[in-house]
Design a protein around this nucleic acid. Structure first.
Lengths: 220, 220
DNA sequence: GCTCGTATGATACAATTGTTTGGACGGTTT
DNA sequence: AAACCGTCCAAACAATTGTATCATACGAGC
């Protein structure tokens, strides 16, 4: 019955998997941190791989997808009521995502784990990550329907999205390089998650301005 | 004496390390592919880790750094003589780097190995990668001296550089997602390495235009 | 109070890991 | 020809891995 052991294992395994990857972590270390017996993992999860799968699933499903940030098409107005125009709304979404990615809180390992899977997908979790990512990016793309004129081709929108995401992802993956390239105070002053996101969005707006809808369909 | 064994090991180890990572590859597999005895690795390199270090070092030192693409400040004219303005020259550099990153040739594993180290640095090779990357990015930054007006602060230049690189890196790391998000023919038609690079550069030029030098110092 | 099924624990297991060993081979030197 | 060297091999090594085993402890239900 005692779910506490199962939970303790998951909570211990998450950060370790995130830091060392699947093949880099040992069940012994997990059990040691979780203060449970060696056999507990196989007893509750069947195998190390199953544990990883469960950890990853519960991790990414705890993250708020963009689909939620964007909101349902029907009740968009309610989600967006706080913003008076599309630009502010879009900007806010990206900033929030950036802040999430660079979170320094306890949930930091969650992002690490997901990025590990993005950069080097595990065969057992690749599918789950895929559907998650696809849903996410598709939501963002359809949001841009409002921004772009109808005749603007899809590939252009994707390029814009990937450019924004790429900019943010870069600081995540190559953050150590950024740290080495400039004095620490410059980084602290000008490269906060929010500033990074705002820069990316601004660049997007200036570059994409010529392709904007003539008549805004956003009723406030 | 016989260097052929040593070389065969390095050549076999490269692609395997690139694909499976350090902890994911076994010395047995390397020896099997290289068709040498188990003991050969320890005989010639001392340890698996030393082998990895040597493989990585020889890999990244075989890649042309940006410093070379940019050219020495003195003989820049010669390197750049083929281009009539800065924009074309800069664009060409980025495109060439993008093509290198997405190379499908035999050297594909080299990029894989380097990206693996970028995303998840190994303690034993982190330093080498660092100095390499720093040299690389610094060269690109100093190239932009010609473009930007002197009063434009460094952090802005860095943001521009990271934006360009991030866009390109994104397709490398999340390429599998890109593949799932759109029909294959759209990807093939609009997302070649060159097109990706050109888009990033163009976005840069439009966004950075207001901060451009008034008087071009580039003597043709 | 006894029983039965679940939960936990210490330990063993088989497989795989990187590394080491001792000797055989082949060519060069003395 | 004998001694010697670097090279290479088959096998073994110790350590670590994920997993399985078996016994015990616990607790609810009859």
């Amino acid at each position: 019955m005692s779910e506490t052991v199962k939970i303790r294992i998951i909570e211990a395994a998450g950060p370790i998997f995130a830091q060392k990857g699947f093949s880099g972590t040992t069940v012994r270390e997990i059990c040691s941190v979780a203060k449970v017996n060696q056999a507990a993992i196989n007893y509750y999860f069947g195998s190390k791989e199953n544990l990883y799968k469960e950890v990853f699933t519960s991790t990414y499903s705890s993250m708020k997808p963009w689909a939620d940030l964007v909101g349902d098409p029907e009740k968009q107005t309610e989600v967006r009521s706080r913003f008076e125009n599309f630009d502010d709304f879009f900007s806010d979404i990206v900033v929030r995502r950036a802040k999430e990615i660079f979170a320094t809180e306890l949930s930091r390992w969650k992002i690490q784990l997901i990025f590990r899977e993005i950069n080097d997908p595990t065969p057992c979790c690749g599918d789950r990550l895929q559907e998650y990512i696809i849903r996410d990016y598709t939501a963002l793309n359809s949001l841009l329907d409002e921004y772009f004129a109808p005749e603007i081709p899809q590939e252009f929108r994707w390029k814009c999205i990937f450019s924004i995401m790429g900019s943010i992802f870069f600081y995540k993956s190559s953050g150590w390089a950024v740290r080495k390239l400039m004095p620490e105070d410059m980084r602290q002053k000008h490269f906060s998650p929010e500033q990074i996101a705002v820069f990316a969005v601004k660049q997007f707006f200036t570059a994409a301005a010529p392709y904007r809808r003539k008549h805004q369909t956003v009723e406030k």
